[in-house]
Amino acid sequence: MSSSFRKIDYSLRPAKYAERKMLVDVLRRLTPFQAVEDYCYIGFGSVWFSDFILFHRMLGINKMISIEQAETARARFEENRPFNINIEFGNSSTVLPSLDWSERVIVWLDYDDPLEPEMLQDVRSIANRARSGSVLAVSLQCVKAPSYVDYERDMDEGKMTAIERFRQTFGRERVPDDARDDDLTGWPYGTLSRKMLINEIELALAERNLSSNTNLKFKAICEIEYRDDARMCTLVGAFVEDDENERLEACAFQRLDFMPANQRPIRIEMPKLTIRELRKIEQQLPKPAERELELGSIPASDAEKFSRMYRYLPNFAVMEI
């Protein structure tokens, strides 16, 4: 996994910003399990620590652990650390098993790369250890699978298909039988990646439940898709024991206004509107169901995008000199 902080300015990703704020609203609803501020947050802070800052300020979470792979940039991480965050240097596959899993945690494995076998090992490691009431979010890039890139570059007439290369990388048992080459690019690739993550988690939980006489399950909360520079997808779910299912139901995640009624992925799309147009729509929100927006010349599709996501989108202002 690459040191993405050297090439991506996270402060300039509006859809990512919206995703973070949506996650805040999801996490606020965990109180049937315990006070959110008493959770431990584990993530990849990078040099911006954007999610750490937001979760501390908005949720009051104090115990935070950032896993950083780039040990050669240790001084830079330390200098940019905004709060008393514990930074663990090393690969996530090594650091995750060494952490204390006796308390409930919120883990966000916010990768910038496409799905890799090591990522499946990370979610398996968490599924083997997380307490009931813990939350796991995993974000992945879903532009094009490396196996598909290799397939396109291969000039051999009898070359192996992209999906066969993918199966060789991950193992046949991990890839759905009905997966095809077309599932290795774009949003279908995101869907396939999320399926494989869930399958890996469920397999780990089946083994854990058998050996420890527990009945822990992974319940998906939502799936998110967005695009700033690259297509990205996120899976969010909770680990829950059978005897705590009522607590999960009491969280009422489905009442969040950005949750689709049909359980489809939440698609964050940035409207292409002027500041004046944004303000005109904003003055009419929140909108009663029976009322139509007065749009004038504003494109209806962009107005709809803004209406669905306005609470989570960043505010922009233009300053002219």
Rank of each mutant, 00 (worst) to 15 (best):
F5E: 07
R6S: 09
K7Y: 14
I8G: 04
R13G: 02
D25L: 05
R28Y: 07
R28L: 10
Q34I: 06
Q34H: 06
F44E: 01
S46Y: 01
K63L: 13
N84M: 15
E88A: 13
N91Q: 11
S102G: 07
D113R: 00
P114A: 04
L120T: 00
R124D: 02
S125I: 01
R131H: 06
V143P: 00
A145L: 04
Y148H: 12
M155E: 15
T169A: 09
E173Q: 15
D181L: 06
G186K: 06
W187I: 12
P188Y: 11
M196I: 09
I198M: 08
I201H: 03
E207W: 04
S212D: 05
K217Q: 14
F218R: 00
K219Y: 13
E225K: 08
E225P: 03
R227Q: 15
D229P: 00
D229R: 07
A238M: 07
D242C: 10
D242K: 10
E244H: 12
F258P: 01
M259K: 06
P265N: 11
P265D: 10
R267V: 15
E269N: 06
M270Q: 05
K280T: 09
E282N: 14
Q283P: 03
E290L: 11
E292T: 11
S301A: 14
D302E: 12
A303D: 04
Y312E: 06
A317Q: 13
